[in-house]
Design a protein around this nucleic acid. Sequence first.
DNA 1: TCAGAAACGATCAAAATCAATCGAAATCGA
DNA 2: TCGATTTCGATTGATTTTGATCGTTTCTGA
Lengths: 259, 259
Amino acid sequence: MIQEAHPALAPERRDRIRSLVREGGVARVEDLRKNLKVSVATIRRDLEILEEEGKVKRVHGGAVSMESRLEESVFDDKTSQASKQKKRIAEDAFNLVGHEESVFLDGGSTTLFLARLLKQRTDITVVTNSVRAMEELADSGPRVIFTGGEFRRISQTMVGPLSSAILEQIRVDKAFMGTMGFCLKNGITTTDPNEAYIKRVVAENAGQVILMADSSKAEKVSFARVSDWDQVDILISDHDIPKDFTKTLRKRGIKVRLP
Amino acid sequence: MIQEAHPALAPERRDRIRSLVREGGVARVEDLRKNLKVSVATIRRDLEILEEEGKVKRVHGGAVSMESRLEESVFDDKTSQASKQKKRIAEDAFNLVGHEESVFLDGGSTTLFLARLLKQRTDITVVTNSVRAMEELADSGPRVIFTGGEFRRISQTMVGPLSSAILEQIRVDKAFMGTMGFCLKNGITTTDPNEAYIKRVVAENAGQVILMADSSKAEKVSFARVSDWDQVDILISDHDIPKDFTKTLRKRGIKVRLP
DNA sequence: TCAGAAACGATCAAAATCAATCGAAATCGA
DNA sequence: TCGATTTCGATTGATTTTGATCGTTTCTGA
């Protein structure tokens, strides 16, 4: 058997597979084979090992990443419209981040997509109270400041008075927020009062507040009130949002972006 | 046998191998041979030694570094002696945690083993600045308070003045600390001054300070001084620690446990 | 539901790597 | 200087990894 000039070491190759699977969320065996220039048998064997280690989950035709909690939750509806919209919203938000700025990311899947994009940047500072965003940025990328506080398992975020201890000491250029619901009458609402409180503190200490919410959140009202619309500078949503909604918000001086 | 003009001394060569492996994360035997101009047999022997020392992990075709990424696979490497000792130390520490107590865990692999054990408990509160410990406890287990602050990638911990903002507001019953080195003369030392500072703040706000360090750390001195021995209440180590070490510490009122 | 296609798992052979052994060279102590 | 010890390199048989083949299973579309 003739080996190539530089046959990648087995762990090296598996690491490569791992990140390829993680990047795309899923990967086909055939694509991996072309990318790594080894036989499908080797790919399969590697996937078997990676599955034992719990890094990926094998499926017919390829494998799914088990490392990113982002995929874990989004996987089942990866192709769904909602997920695509969230991704587009995140990409649009990414373009708003300027050079050497500091940004805040709160919990939620939309901001998590943004976190993944921000991984490329090393010139910025990311402040977050989301453990998932933290994990996403743990290996490389921007400077990260984590708020700390009490851990809330349901949302995988840090909440409570201890969190604000740090938040009050810092100021960010832009705060990217998710939400459970927003409507013209009640403003922004979310499920947990503690989380609502954190969002308020952040909004007060941010240059710009950018709300990222797909149209499924429109006209929804949740339990805990976060803030009124006058706190929000920009809303990024999608085209399925009611027309009069956009119109009213723009009249109130809020920039509405529909990528 | 004809030696070259400058036959590198054996330890010198092993040091070279070590850094080569660390730089690339991995290195194949053939490349090392070309680089160091010795036979593959020598390279293999060196790798064998370096593996025993825990510096690298041998794989078919070469070796991977155990130093670069803060051992992503602490839990995989169940066979190594060092890992076994750490586990035993963690199990002993686990028995010290009383009902409804609050404990602090800092970074490092030994405390990570403890974190895994603490996952069973739901009556306690865990305070930590280690992202790894956080992840370990993210799904279920005790109440978790995270210190937050600036993220230090190398150690995967939170450090800096922002961290102390939260730490100063809380008090724990027991603080479980790891360390890079400890000796009778210089006390506890670690690599990073920021981390040393956090450890000091924690020690001041803890009822008991419990140092978890296997014998490989004994008589090692690192860059940043953490504290003197009078801050420490209990040392958990193993039987390979020098006898006079134990004796002296006990004379100074420190409980030494060797599980 | 059924047939064709794609993907899978098991098996085997080739190639590379590894471990063990032995002998040569260098170093050290007397 | 001599002999013992250590370190290194080469050889050889064993082991591991990899790729190809082939029968079986799973998926897909009619």
